[in-house]
Design a protein around this nucleic acid. Structure first.
Lengths: 122, 122
DNA sequence: GTTGTATTTAGCTTATTAGCTAAATAGAAT
DNA sequence: ATTCTATTTAGCTAATAAGCTAAATACAAC
């Protein structure tokens, strides 16, 4: 359950051009989703993404992308899983579902002429 | 239709604690929605909100709140309408509908196992 | 144990942002 | 015209953020 501070962190993370593009890159199928937990012994699929492969899509230094990924992780937008000496990255769909629900509720309430509602934490 | 830069601007606007609280304040029924365009000759309703009344809810100087409102307006999150020497503020529901749709599509695609999709502009 | 690959941390610089006060503008009311 | 109310603009300071390079850490492979 995301509280107000979580939501602010999510918006802050997405409110930067570089991070938004990384988010888009991870969420829009540029790669297959990294690790399949149901088959832990399978090889990592070829197009699974890691920090270096994401960084290669951008004109910024690797540590810069690493920091942005950390911020996306701290905002619970992505999940990073270490496997051997690589870190695989996947979308955090639970968070996106919660945010989608917030906006959905906001609009749903409006359409019913009910009091607006977006964040009822705190 | 919001393009990528519009979306980034929206997230940046909501990714600040003060602006998020203003947004919440405006959208969650703290006030009735300001001007009813269908009845242009009616008096402004008593609880309609203006810059000063929003500022009074916060511990920041008025110009600070004014700037934050400008940023929310630039991001198309709120609408500001001048009437006499006051400015009335209301939620920009069109924008919220578009953002809600973006997240809805993202989640819908995921649930179908389809490629993720959030922003297809640019 | 040395080398190579992947990633993060530290420390720095520059740009941006958020707050403030004081002054300016706009319009209403006297 | 002067005054009052509402709001914005200007100009400042301090804090935060985004980029960089260099160094550190983690682990694999040889």
């Amino acid at each position: 359950m995301l509280d107000m501070d979580d939501k602010i962190k999510i918006f802050k993370a997405l409110g930067n051009e570089t991070r938004f593009k990384i988010f888009k890159n991870i969420f829009t199928g540029g790669y297959a989703c990294s690790i399949d937990d149901t088959k832990p012994n399978d090889d990592i699929i070829a197009q699974a993404t890691c920090v270096t492969s994401i960084a290669s899509e951008f004109d910024f230094a690797l540590p810069t992308i690493s920091r942005h990924l950390k911020e996306l992780r701290d905002a619970k937008i992505i999940i990073m899983k270490k496997n051997k000496n690589k870190i695989y990255i996947e979308p955090n769909i639970e968070t996106m579902k919660e945010i989608a629900e917030c906006f959905g509720t906001l609009i749903g309430n409006f359409d019913q002429g009910v009091v607006y509602q977006f964040d009822n934490t705190k």
